[in-house]
Amino acid sequence: MGVVRGCNIPEELHYNIDNNVWARREADGNVSVGLTSYACSLAGEIVSYTPKKAGKAIEKDKSCATVESGKWVGPVKAPVAGEVVAINDAVTAKPGTINRDPYGEGWIVRLKPTNWDADATALKTGNDALQAFEAKMNADGFKGC
């Protein structure tokens, strides 16, 4: 597990740094998507989660869900294009799960990717992701999680 300024950044995941989202390719070929711990720290406690419906086609960098905290409402932008195949009912019931376990139980949606191989080339992993998050946090003046 990588850590940047107190924020957990699992190095095996794929990240869209600008949008503060991660992607994990599952054994069945689908892709789980979620917010980073950095995004959760910026947003504060998530109080509402509204995912796109199963069957909905999502373009890369377009909203696959909307989340709301006490100080922010915004889209969760898909790091890859695909069709929503699952939403997280546990997060619907308890949106704060996103904050407590952003890389596990707090996943946002699962997508059947349109073209994982092409879309994944734009995502960062491992040390590249850690360095990119450090640069982003520095540019944003972020003190830490």
Rank of each mutant, 00 (worst) to 15 (best):
G29D: 06
T66K: 11
G96M: 10
R100N: 11
T121M: 10
N20S: 14
V67Q: 02
A65Y: 06
G144L: 03
E83S: 13
A23N: 06
N20G: 06
C7F: 01
E11I: 14
E11R: 11
A23W: 09
D101F: 03
G34V: 05
A118T: 14
H14T: 02
D89Y: 01
A27G: 02
A93W: 00
A135H: 03
P113I: 12
C145N: 14
K143C: 00
C145F: 10
K60L: 04
K94L: 11
L123C: 10
E83M: 13
F142D: 00
P79Y: 03
G2P: 14
R110C: 12
M137L: 11
R24Q: 12
I87Y: 11
T125D: 03
V76L: 08
E68N: 08
N127G: 06
V80R: 06
T125W: 00
A65Q: 08
T97H: 05
E12F: 05
A135T: 15
G2C: 11
C145L: 04
L123T: 05
K53W: 00
I46G: 01
A39V: 05
V21P: 10
G70T: 10
A129V: 13
V76S: 07
K60P: 05
G126C: 08
L111T: 10
A43T: 11
S32F: 02
K62A: 12
N20V: 06
A27P: 09
I9T: 05
E26L: 15
A120T: 06
D128L: 06
N20C: 12
V91E: 07
G82Y: 13
D18Y: 07
P113A: 09
V76H: 07
T36Y: 01
L123N: 09
E105A: 15
K53V: 11
V73N: 05
V4C: 09
R5L: 15
S63R: 08
A135F: 00
T36Q: 04
Y15I: 05
A120C: 13
K94Q: 12
V33K: 03
E11Q: 14
P51G: 03
P113R: 02
A86F: 02
